[in-house]
Simulated scan of single mutants.
Amino acid sequence: MLALPMTLNTTAETETAKIARGLRERDTELLADLVERCQHRLVRYLVYLTGRREHAEDLAQETWIRVLQRGSQYNGRQRFDPWLFAIARNLAIDDIRKKLKAVQTASLPNDGDAMLLLPSSGPSPFEAAARSEDAMRLAGRLQILPPLYREALLLRFQEELSLAEIAQVVGAPVTTVTSRIYRGLAALRSAFEESDSHGV
């Protein structure tokens, strides 16, 4: 039974090494495959960060340009997806900083938690796509969570990233990510209990 996990690990390492080599060589076929495989999840993640689909699609395109420009920086030691999400997150934060500076409404915190300043605009794509009452209730409760908790929960349970991968994406220690997930789940539980007690 020990041979199976080792085989899977070797396969994953081979895939990441292939991606790293392809990015260094600017392999357009590989890039097209990566876009096809990751685009939906990337746009979905950026929609959660920005609140606007059109803007998320623009940032996704910019993310792929950065992947092409900086592909040599991907070393292939970890999965590709967390590296991609980290680029997208940094672009979203940079964009928020530019917009806030342009309108001179506030200065951003130095820790990169710019999403704290974003208002929620209308129903999220998660809510629009929800096909069941439970999914709609979950989407509504997620929207009221602080953005840092919501992001950690989405990366963990929707995108199925490991704690280490989430830490890589958000640029925080694993202990901080664990805390955000724990607190996010506690806040989500409280939101459900409160709505259940009010009959909502």
Results as ranks from 00 to 15, higher is better:
149 Y>F: 15
14 T>E: 14
22 G>S: 08
7 T>P: 06
106 A>Q: 09
180 R>P: 10
186 A>Q: 15
119 P>T: 11
97 R>T: 13
23 L>V: 04
44 R>S: 06
65 I>V: 01
55 H>F: 13
25 E>H: 15
33 D>I: 02
140 G>D: 13
121 S>G: 06
5 P>E: 03
124 S>K: 10
88 A>S: 10
78 Q>S: 15
148 L>M: 12
92 A>C: 12
150 R>I: 12
111 D>L: 01
32 A>N: 03
177 V>A: 00
72 S>R: 14
92 A>H: 07
95 D>A: 15
165 E>I: 01
102 A>I: 05
42 L>I: 01
194 E>W: 09
83 W>S: 00
117 L>A: 13
181 I>F: 02
156 R>E: 12
169 V>F: 00
180 R>F: 07
44 R>E: 06
65 I>T: 02
50 T>A: 12
146 P>G: 12
116 L>F: 03
37 R>I: 00
100 L>V: 07
79 R>A: 07
176 T>L: 00
21 R>I: 01
4 L>T: 12
106 A>N: 13
15 E>W: 11
168 Q>G: 00
18 K>F: 06
185 L>R: 09
178 T>F: 08
143 Q>M: 15
115 M>S: 09
65 I>M: 09
162 S>C: 10
180 R>A: 11
132 S>F: 10
75 N>R: 09
25 E>M: 15
53 R>Q: 12
75 N>T: 09
64 W>H: 07
198 H>C: 03
117 L>V: 01
126 F>N: 05
110 N>A: 11
35 V>M: 08
11 T>H: 07
137 R>C: 08
23 L>K: 00
94 D>R: 14
48 Y>K: 04
93 I>K: 14
145 L>I: 04
8 L>N: 14
1 M>K: 15
195 S>C: 07
67 V>L: 06
164 A>L: 09
146 P>Y: 04
129 A>W: 09
156 R>S: 14
61 Q>M: 04
192 F>R: 07
8 L>M: 10
24 R>G: 07
18 K>W: 06
22 G>P: 02
119 P>H: 05
6 M>A: 05
98 K>T: 08
